[in-house]
Amino acid sequence: MNKDELIAKLKPIIAPYVQDEEAFKNLTEDTDFVNDLKINSANLVDIILDIEDEFNIRLENEDMEQMLNVRSAMAIVTSKLNS
């Protein structure tokens, strides 16, 4: 899966929790879940669970620690898929 395919898979997972639609339209790898998309921090857990279900992977607490933006979510998913 290349980067664009991965972003295309992540976008519908993130969408239900987004509070700033304008920032979501302009989503890039640098987009921050909390600062840009204004996602509630309790909903970050939902995103993590949805990612686990979608990619059939399991994320540990250490993986979650840096899950604050699109770039790190992509890196974590990629590393899990390749392991």
Binding site: N40, A42, N43, V45, D46, I48, L49, M64
Partner: peptide, 17 residues
């Protein structure tokens, strides 16, 4: 809002936090 926004009873939710 928390009741509407989050379903803490979904599988694995509590265990993550």
């Amino acid at each position: 809002l928390a009741k509407r926004q989050s379903d803490w009873q979904r599988p694995r939710y509590l265990d993550k936090i």
